[in-house]
């Protein structure tokens, strides 16, 4: 108990002293997570819309596959991407391994299924009359799609926030593809693992508090957006 309390006390001091290393690690985490969430959203939201609004053979199978991918362990994704971008991999010449880009690639693969399935759910809830109304008023298919996305904005917002929450807290991809290089690919989760290995708990606890604070903020936002979805539905 003394260990935890001492670590907590020192961690708060570190935080309020604006420790450079701490902020650098948090900055890298926020940067790679934000970029991967943005890319995954650009892919997942249109895909989710298309799947929700299309009828095609194999749609159920696709949805099943997407739901299965939600459970894919981060280390499996890390291993998969590693096999492509390592020196012996197909894209080895691009020298992506142990860079922020590599982490982003892995995280995008992790959360595209999440964004897509949540976007499908959000768009599917939207009354079909919005579609018909937009079309009868002369909207093109693209304009109609934009109307639907606007009407589903809270559900889609919740999907994006959930995706961000997923990547900022993952460790497998960041560790395997980032290499935990100080000031470069060291994220909050990989730094915590390292500090634990070293027996240095202060920084680990400080990072843990920061991560939990961010996660709490994300959850608040998520529930706000989810709540607006229900309010709009009423």
């Amino acid at each position: 108990m003394d260990l935890l309390l001492d670590s907590l006390k020192s961690a708060f001091l570190l935080f309020f002293a604006c420790d450079q290393e701490l902020f650098s690690i948090v900055g890298v985490s926020l940067k790679v997570s934000a970029i991967s969430t943005l890319i995954a959203s650009c892919v997942g939201i249109p895909c989710g819309f298309l799947v929700a609004y299309s009828s095609f053979y194999g749609k159920r199978l696709l949805l099943t596959c997407l739901n299965t991918l939600l459970a894919m362990p981060t280390v499996v994704i890390g291993l998969l991407v590693y096999s492509f971008i390592s020196r012996r991999g197909v894209f080895g010449s691009l020298e992506l391994l142990y860079t922020q880009q590599a982490i982003i690639i892995g995280q995008v693969i992790l959360i595209v299924p999440l964004v897509t399935t949540l976007a499908i759910a959000a768009v599917s809830k939207i009354d079909n009359r919005y579609r018909n109304t937009a079309l009868t008023l002369g909207a093109t298919q693209l304009q109609m799609a934009w109307v639907i996305i606007q009407e589903a904005r809270y559900g889609i917002g919740a999907a994006v926030i959930a995706a961000f929450g997923r990547v900022i807290a993952e460790v497998g991809i960041s560790m395997m593809l980032g290499g935990n290089a100080k000031g470069f690919t060291r994220t909050m989760t990989t730094a915590m693992a390292l500090e634990y290995d070293k027996g240095e708990f202060v920084l680990a606890v400080a990072l843990g508090i920061t991560l939990m604070t961010i996660a709490f903020g994300i959850n608040l936002l998520f529930h706000f957006f989810q709540g607006r979805t229900h309010v709009d539905a009423v």
């Binding site: 009354d127 009359r129 919005y130 018909n132 109304t133 606007q150 009407e151 709009d232």
Partner: peptide
């Protein structure tokens, strides 16, 4: 114009 028209948000 639908029987139960829906208005955009």
């Amino acid at each position: 114009v639908d029987q139960y028209p829906i208005l955009f948000t």
